[in-house]
Design a protein around this nucleic acid. Structure first.
Length: 803
RNA sequence: GGGGAUGUGGUGGAACUGGUAGACACGCCAGGUUUAGAACCUGGUGCCGCAAGGCGUGUGGGUUCGACUCCCUCCAUCCCUACCA
């Protein structure tokens, strides 16, 4: 009678046992610590496959580290403020708060049912006043440090709904709900000077163990460029237009200057000039998202203003261009059509001069590369780099320019005109902003009236109006603020008196941070900035928050990202219920390596389940018997022992250095398939059983991080009556002696094509190996009557005869 | 438009440092077991070919004794693009 594998029964009991025994509660001690953090979820309602994948990876690594005697801290919380709660509130007539809290309760149950080993004593949610009071305090400190300021900036405005829209709420230039043509509107907003840290955000990327592609993305995003600030005096005026260019060497090719539609000059012109006014109105029709602006047709209008070229004194026309961003650089661009793609298209369209100032050999314009200057007066024949230096010197002499380092990174706009977010702790006395005192924090988000849709704080008079002269700020923080410091708060989440207590010194930095590649730039950059700013205020230590980063690929179905709008979502819950958490975890880890996208496949889930059942069937009817290590092993026994330990070695390497769980699992499967049937027989010899025991122990232990329930259950069942050793207590040791072999398989090639294979003793030298190789029939036939030009021998691998 | 990735059998993937392409699994085929089915077990399975052999890692080229791996070209798909999180 074999007992049947019923994950629903065993998983629940084991999970309850873990919680009862505080298995995952972490406290500082004298072991080496390992802070493993997975990006906390937005509580959208239920877990999706992306979460399951992310959190399984984190849990597998955490469990592996625990087995290797690390003090592991793995917390979990909720990124609970945000737009979807407001949308749900409108759609379902529930308050954002209730909706969010209900979602959290459900998702927490789901996380537990997946067997994820979190320290729930440090759970946090960003919509909790006990969390965001500290965020308001951080804002105050930033303000006092001069990192916060107010500035006008652009938002997407829906004129019918009279709300600010997020970029994703603008579809083809129309508001998603109202369908109205969205307008770009300029409003006052709070900004954080992340650019003060641009240099360090760039340089300290060298300190972290992150994937190179993510570092590169951050580097390009920060975008440090060396160039010059060049002044163009406006004709008949004392004023100048200041441009930034990375190519001062092309200054003699400037044929127009383009300014942003938001530039004060543009706005002034619009007051008196109807066509400019119409043009600016048209520019307001593109959404403020960079991708939309870049794809929009390049449009411009002449201003009839001229500036004077700083070196030649020639008149240069000033245009307004819809592609010029006021926020980037100086909001003014010098147009060099011959040597810049965008300028070339613009000049061609509006029939502006195209003057080539860098030589080219039969290359079409625009010519982007550097080279030798022409048509540049005294700078002719110089190379670009030299010319740049000399041109800047000359401009400096004339007080019309100087060298400048420019960053692409812009300051961080943190104001949001929404309800479901952390209130910005500011009051205006007669219009003058003042951050409120710490002892008046938190400024709590007011409750909504029963069954009310979310009302923006600006319309909530009770909240807004303190007195005749004193009004509250009604914007809330960007939710990226909430997620920029949660990693640090986790260490002290149960301490209501201090934002970061002594535990933060022990646990930080995060040793491994795991999350989706889609966060490669913004979230990670903002968190890095927060950490540095908090360090400079002596609130945290160290330069970087996340020592190592693992970016996981997306879960796809039918080649596309799972999304509600495409209708291709797969709900993990039904799979957990049908197959059990262990199967879902194993499937997730087996189907693709963490960094790659994972294509969902129903039948592969069956495969994962089948494997677990095979392990179950092997172990469930067995009990450990103590057998003394036999003096001699048969060839077959040695084969199994060698396979067992070489598998263990591979798995250890895959876990330790590659996070390559799919190959580790494949190796366990291979080992299971390798066990001879005769060893499994009840009447097998003691030495057979000894070897089988060894294999079972290693299979269960190496499977434990991935499939913790079934491996623990089988472990207790197998070992329980004999020993109280717990499965998660230690990772098995590799017996290196078993891995030494005296022979290897030599591959024999002729001109790089495989012609034969042979087992060769490691004791032979190259000449002897060559002779051995030539005795192989197929090799000999191919070499017959041929002159061997060259022999290439790669030790214990390949011999290649070149003929 | 810009930035970053990815592309290997019917499918998911493996090949870790330039050295046997296709591990492991899914699917499919054949057989066993079964009254039948499910489940399970055994064997086969890149393509062409009777075979010898040839071809084969998105496309086209290059470097090399040898290329999935390095270089160049083009194509396709995905992510980010500062207010989705």
């Amino acid at each position: 009678m074999s007992r049947e594998y019923k994950p629903q029964v065993i998983e629940k009991t084991i999970q309850e046992d873990w919680i009862k025994n505080n298995k995952f509660k972490a406290m500082p001690d004298d072991r080496e610590k390992f802070y493993c953090l997975s990006m906390f979820p937005y509580p959208s309602g239920k877990l999706h496959m992306g979460h399951v994948r992310n959190y399984t990876i984190g849990d597998v690594i955490s469990r592996y580290k625990r087995m290797n005697n690390f003090n592991v801290f793995q917390p979990m919380g909720w990124d609970a403020f945000g737009l979807p709660a407001e949308n749900a509130a409108i759609a379902n007539k529930v308050s954002p708060k209730d909706w969010t809290n209900q979602n959290i309760e459900h998702m927490k149950e789901q996380l537990i049912s997946l067997g994820l080993g979190y320290d729930w004593s440090k759970e946090l949610r960003t919509c909790d006043p006990d969390y965001y009071k500290w965020e308001q305090l951080i804002f105050k400190k930033f303000y006092e440090k001069g990192l916060v300021y107010r500035k006008k900036s652009l938002v997407n405005w829906d004129p019918i709904d009279e709300t600010v829209l997020a970029n994703e709420q603008v579809i083809d230039g129309k508001g998603w709900r109202s369908g109205a043509q969205v307008e770009i509107k300029e409003i006052d907003q709070w900004f954080i000077k992340i650019t003060d840290y641009a240099e360090e955000l760039l340089s300290s990327l060298d300190e972290v163990d992150w994937p190179e592609n993510v570092k590169l993305m951050q580097k390009n995003w920060i975008g440090k460029s060396y160039g010059a600030e060049i002044k163009y005096r406006i004709e008949n005026s004392e004023e100048c237009l200041i441009t930034f260019s990375t190519r001062p060497d092309t200054i003699f090719g400037v044929s127009f200057i383009a300014i942003s539609p938001s530039h004060p000059i543009s706005k002034n012109l619009a007051k008196e000039n109807d066509s400019v006014k119409k043009f600016l109105a048209k520019c307001k029709e593109t959404s403020s998202a960079e991708a939309d602006m870049a794809k929009a047709e390049k449009l411009g209008i002449s201003t009839n203003i001229n500036v004077l070229h700083p070196l030649t004194g020639n008149k240069i026309p000033v245009w307004i261009g819809n592609f010029v961003l006021l926020d980037y650089g100086t909001g003014v661009v010098m147009g060099v059509p011959a040597h810049d793609q965008r300028d070339f298209e613009f000049a061609s369209k509006y029939k502006l001069n195209i003057e080539q100032v860098i030589t080219s050999e039969n290359t079409d314009l625009p010519l982007i590369q550097k080279g030798k200057l022409i048509n540049s007066g005294e700078f002719d024949n110089m190379e670009s780099d030299e010319a740049s230096v000399k041109i800047i010197n000359k401009l400096r002499d004339k007080n019309l320019g100087e060298e400048l380092i420019q960053f692409r990174l812009r300051d961080w706009g943190i104001s949001r005109q929404r309800y479901w977010g952390c209130p910005i702790p500011v009051v205006y006395e007669n219009g003058v902003p003042k951050v409120i005192e710490e002892n008046k924090m938190p400024v709590e988000l007011p409750e909504l009236p029963e069954n009310s849709p979310p009302i923006p704080l600006s319309q909530n008079n009770k909240f807004r109006s303190i007195s005749e002269n004193i009004k509250r700020e009604t914007d809330t923080f960007d939710t990226f603020m909430d997620s920029s410091w949660y990693y640090a708060r986790f260490t002290s989440a149960d301490n209501n008196n201090e934002i970061f207590d002594n535990n933060s010194k022990y646990w930080l930095p995060v040793d491994l941070y795991i999350g989706g590649i889609e966060h490669a730039i913004l979230h990670l950059l903002y968190s890095r900035f927060f950490h540095k700013a908090l360090r400079d205020m002596d609130m945290l230590e160290g330069n970087e928050p996340f020592k190592k980063l693992l970016t996981q690929g997306m879960v796809l179905k039918d080649g596309a990202k799972m999304s509600k709008s495409k209708g291709n979502t797969v709900d993990p819950q039904s799979y957990i219920e049908k197959y059990g958490a262990d199967t879902v975890r194993l499937y997730m880890m087996f189907t693709a390596p963490p960094e790659q996208s994972l294509e969902w496949s129903e039948s592969s889930v069956e495969g994962a389940s089948r494997f677990i059942k095979k392990v179950w069937n092997l172990v469930i009817e067995r009990e450990y018997e103590e057998i003394a290590e036999p003096k001699n092993f048969s060839k077959e026994e040695m084969g199994l022992r060698r396979k067992t330990h070489s598998t263990l070695k591979k798995i250890t390497n895959d876990f330790e250095t590659r996070y390559s769980f799919n190959t580790a699992i494949a190796a366990i499967m291979e080992l299971l398939n390798f066990i001879p049937d005769s060893f499994k027989d009840i009447k097998a010899s003691d030495s057979n059983k000894y070897c089988l025991n060894e294999s079972i122990i290693i299979i269960l232990k190496t499977l434990n991080p991935i499939a913790p329930h079934v491996s623990e259950y089988l472990w207790k069942n197998f070992y329980g009556n004999f020993s109280h050793e717990e499965i998660e207590s230690s990772w098995p040791e590799i017996n290196e002696d078993l891995l030494e072999v005296s022979e290897f398989e030599l591959v024999i090639q002729i001109n790089g094509k495989v012609r034969g294979k042979k087992l060769i003793s490691k004791e032979l030298n190259q000449d002897e190996i060559e002779q051995e190789a030539k005795t192989i029939e197929n090799v000999a036939a191919n070499l017959k009557n041929k002159k061997i030009k060259k022999v290439i021998y790669i030790k214990e691998k390949i011999i290649n005869f070149v003929i």
